[in-house]
């Protein structure tokens, strides 16, 4: 029941967030396009959040976050990392994860859920690999802090 309620609340806030978010600066990246541009990335992040909520390995680490803000920030971050016309305006990765003591198990679990969310959105293996290759560079800033 709790999961259902949380999922519904998440759905409502995310629908709103996705509808509000637009960005039109020029970019040059096949990866960004391969992820479906900002709207595609927003959808992937949305699906990722649903997956996180139901994953006992990582859900506790996300307890109490501002879901709309998180969705916007992560979407912007992936958009920027993939070469899209966005700017991540959240706090530094090291600062965000300070004191969370993110384990390897949790980092792996999040990577797994991201991959599954990308598959769910028909992102090609090629684009998945390229994005993961860039995201794993954040590993030292996220784990064991």
């Amino acid at each position: 029941m709790i999961i259902v309620a949380r999922t519904l609340a998440l759905a409502a806030t995310l629908a709103l967030a996705t509808a509000c978010a637009t960005s039109n600066r020029s970019g040059d990246s096949t990866l960004y396009q391969g992820l479906g541009e900002r709207s595609g990335i927003a959808k992937i992040v949305e699906d990722l959040l649903y997956r996180i909520v139901e994953d006992d390995r990582i859900a506790p680490q996300f307890k109490g976050i501002d879901v709309v803000q998180f969705h916007t920030n992560l979407t912007d971050q992936i958009c920027e990392i993939s070469g899209g016309p966005c700017t991540y305006t959240g706090r530094a990765m090291t600062e965000v994860h300070e004191g969370m003591n993110v384990t390897e198990t949790q980092f792996n679990a999040l990577a797994e859920q991201l991959i599954l969310a990308m598959e769910e959105n028909q992102v090609s293996t090629s684009a998945q690999n390229r994005l993961l290759g860039r995201l794993v560079e954040l590993h030292p800033d996220i784990t064991h802090r």
Binding site: T125, S126, A127, N129, R130, L132, G133, V136
Partner: peptide, 10 residues
Amino acid sequence: LFFAAVLDRN
């Protein structure tokens, strides 16, 4: 593992 190293395959 080298990501996307050969024809975008790992």
